[in-house]
Design a protein around this nucleic acid. Structure first.
Lengths: 117, 117
DNA sequence: TCAGATAGGGATAAATTTCTCCCTATTGCA
DNA sequence: TGCAATAGGGAGAAATTTATCCCTATCTGA
């Protein structure tokens, strides 16, 4: 694993939430798990643009940050299921607020993003 | 400037808001501008951990995405003020929700983040 | 018997973001 | 006269994140 060389600052709420949600796919992972897509392979199919590797890495971080738990079923072929922890569930409304704002301003956002590319 | 080689996907609201808010300091910039810290030098003092260069770059992007406007006063030494656009103002409640969640779970977050380092 | 599904890690490359250092310009102040 | 404040861009390095490719293992079904 890559080891950080710069220590993050954890001064305010925005710093703190940033540390746990900042990652290209983390918010989406939480959202899909919330919607009931729990198995790694399902998540990978839901987010085909992300490489399997990064999804695993980000899932590991979410687990370390206690937002999700990972349950391994001792079967073959292997089966793993992720679930939101109670703590993780508390962040879902915030993610919903993000998504809602994005949806409400969909056309304008698409427009300004494409213009700025 | 660096030119993107991977086209972002803009399928859902989460993708869209991600495009405009994803950046190490963008959320904080919007928040401080919202609080009335409008001049670049003020913002730099508010966010001393960010290099001046990156703040300028992220401010430029926020402006391109129409979340803020930049007003130049023709005086010497130069004076510039950023303000939220009407569009930018609509995202403030979402940022407030992020910060509030971070504040509410401050202790736990600090704990899990430090443990995972 | 061989391909595919399942889960995931290691090594390495590529992409992206952020940082550092340097340069431009003008005014006021010591 | 020389330095600080103001605003900000260029070049190149460093840090960080994400992608690619390859390997392990076992069972099911064609």
């Amino acid at each position: 694993m890559y080891e950080k060389k710069v220590i993050p600052n954890l001064n305010c709420g925005l710093d703190l939430i940033g540390e746990v949600l900042y990652g290209k796919w983390k918010i989406r992972l939480l959202w899909f798990i919330h919607q009931g897509h729990k198995r790694p392979s399902e998540l990978q199919r839901k987010i085909p643009d992300a490489s399997r590797r990064v999804l695993n890495m980000q899932l590991n971080e979410l687990e370390k940050h206690e937002l999700i738990t990972r349950k391994i079923y001792p079967v073959v072929p292997p089966k793993v299921e992720y679930s939101l922890t109670e703590f993780g569930k508390t962040v879902i409304p915030v993610i919903a607020a993000l998504g809602q704002w994005g949806d409400e301003h969909e056309d304008r956002l698409r427009d300004v993003i494409l213009k700025s590319l």
